[in-house]
Design a protein around this nucleic acid. Structure first.
Lengths: 344, 344
DNA sequence: TTGTATGCGTTATCAC
DNA sequence: GTGATAACGCATACAA
């Protein structure tokens, strides 16, 4: 490998091999087109000697394809986002695509800026896990026919591929499990519903479950990070309602962040999980087995979600024009101490 | 904003404003060069009307600057990497750079592939948090004079900026804290040292501490994910040694992953943290307060690390040529139940 | 089968 | 001040 002050170009290779640039380019892109073996060899060795790599920038300019995928994440701090990101990155890389990352840091207003920034780099498609505060840029992008796939959060009026946990199944799984364990006073704790489709869907599924199981009584409360007292109050109220009808109370936490808040609140109240109150959290985490008696969770196939999302996108990028799909993957129950059979 | 089937170019703007491409380009890049106000206005409105954005690809091709930063991470699953990533992304964005992400997924062999992939996109600099299995590509990149900054892991023979937790300080902080709490039989649990500089440094600091505090006896054990029994054995042995000299045993876990393993092992042994054995983990996590009696940790200023790394890089990219810096940030002790004063 | 010429969207070097 | 025009690195239609 020859020392390269600047990067060498296709022209360098051509000169080195004593052929034209076109020939080198053909060697690279149309291997099927027969080049005379002798020339092929010359080009090949020249490439090897110079350690030549085509400039994706120039290629992109010429072909109009960048081999880049834009990934916009609501919050890179959220383990869920990361897990999905991981799956997506794998699938993209395997397909020869690189990922450009834009993190919203939970500032929904930056959504448009992010999409435009990535867009300007001519990414060939988007994987979006956003807040949905500003569908404007999304619509614009969709209208331009640029492929995109939504993860976890659906935006109304956007007819595109969508990959997500089967929220209905996940909630039913949790609720049924708690029900079977003897918890009949349920409380769903969620982050503010707002426009976030996954949260709304889970709340709806929860209501449906409660409606379909008469012995069960259930409510839903929104929890904000700042307001710890409100959550504690909601927990106390739930337990009081349970006592009044001599039932056992239990919480379903809508995601890992909320689960941790519930754990903290229960801790401050001096209660014991799986004894004073039941708990199932959506999103399995590595620490769940070791908090208190172990926290029961519904595990999302995050890696698979990311992969599926990327695969959908790759198909579209490759030109597929099938109708928008909705891919719903089921969650798995991880039963632990926090939902052990209630002893009234 | 006019509907755009394809993206409009500088030529479109020029036509729309009735000027030449050169003029538009000047308007964009050399605002200081006086254009006649009348023309400036025409260009400005044309740009606005067409919603024109320059193509970074073409700019990159022409100027040789991509406004891209390459980020190579050993393992995106590691919360530490993510936290750093977050800080770095912020700083880069603020400076008008976008991040290209390459995740090694703990497969060190892919390091070269990653660097080459990003390199081919002409990223202007690298932020690296890698395994160090293959310094070849790094050296090559450094030799080409491309700026880079190492995070957490130093590679020998590479004279570049380095940003990291002050490992010596962090270990001394942990050890002194345990010592003060009455734990005199210490065990450092680390992932396999290998060539990973941060692990080796911590082990050295640990040895130094032990050597400097005669009442203290200390060992170090490497823990692998597959081999749970080995870790349990090491813990048992540590406790036995402690008993033999009627001292109290305690663990220092080298990072969050290991902390969790230790927690699991202690759990299986039926021991109680802060009672049968002490524990301080490096890396603070959101779950640390809620596992067992609360896990004492040393918190890393991760966000700050990421920002500092990105800032160093921005300076270099901007042409600064100061000598390679070593930026060491101190950790903060978060004392919790797992290191409560020992009651022999 | 191989070489020549052109253009992708920009910026920079000239002239005017 | 402003406008042609070449060049960045590459792929391709066309000519040979």
């Amino acid at each position: 490998m020859i020392k390269s002050p600047a990067r060498n170009t296709i022209a360098d290779v051509a000169r080195h091999a004593g052929v034209s640039k076109a020939t080198v380019s053909r060697f690279l892109n149309h291997r099927e087109t027969l080049l005379s073996p002798e020339i092929a060899i010359r080009v090949e060795t020249a490439i090897a000697q110079l350690g030549y790599t085509p400039s994706p920038m120039a290629q992109s300019l010429k072909r109009g394809r960048s081999r880049l995928i834009g990934l916009v994440v609501a919050d890179i701090t959220n383990p869920y986002s990361v897990a999905v990101l991981r799956g997506a990155e794998q699938a993209c890389r395997e397909a020869g695509y690189l990922l450009m990352l834009f993190n919203l840091g939970n500032e929904g207003e930056r959504e448009t800026a992010g999409i435009h920034a990535l867009s300007s780099y001519r990414v060939e498609g988007f994987i979006l896990n956003t807040m949905g505060h500003d569908a404007g840029a999304l619509l614009e992008t969709a209208r331009q026919g640029k492929p995109m796939v939504l993860v976890d959060r659906l935006h109304k009026g956007l007819d595109v591929d969508f990959v997500s946990l089967d929220n209905h199944q996940a909630i039913y799984l949790s609720a049924q499990h708690l029900f079977d364990a003897g918890y009949h006073e349920l409380l769903l704790v969620t982050e503010p519903l707002g426009e976030v489709s996954s949260r709304v869907e889970r709340a709806r599924a929860f209501d449906a479950f409660v409606a379909g199981h008469p012995p069960v009584s259930g409510r839903c409360t929104e929890s904000r990070e700042q307001d710890r007292d409100a959550l504690a109050d909601a927990l106390r109220a739930c337990r009081d309602r349970a006592r009044a009808r001599s039932a056992m109370p239990a919480i379903i936490a809508n995601n890992a962040v909320v689960t941790l808040r519930v754990v903290a609140a229960v801790d401050r109240l001096g209660w014991e999980l799986g004894k004073d109150i039941g708990l199932v959290g959506i999103d399995d985490t590595e620490w769940a087995p070791y908090v208190g008696p172990g926290i029961s969770t519904v595990s999302q196939p995050t890696n698979e979600l990311g992969r599926k999302a990327a695969q959908c996108l790759m198909q579209r990028v490759a030109g597929s024009t099938v109708a928008a799909r909705q891919i719903l993957l089921p969650g798995t129950l991880m039963a632990r101490g926090s939902s052990r059979p209630a002893t009234a």
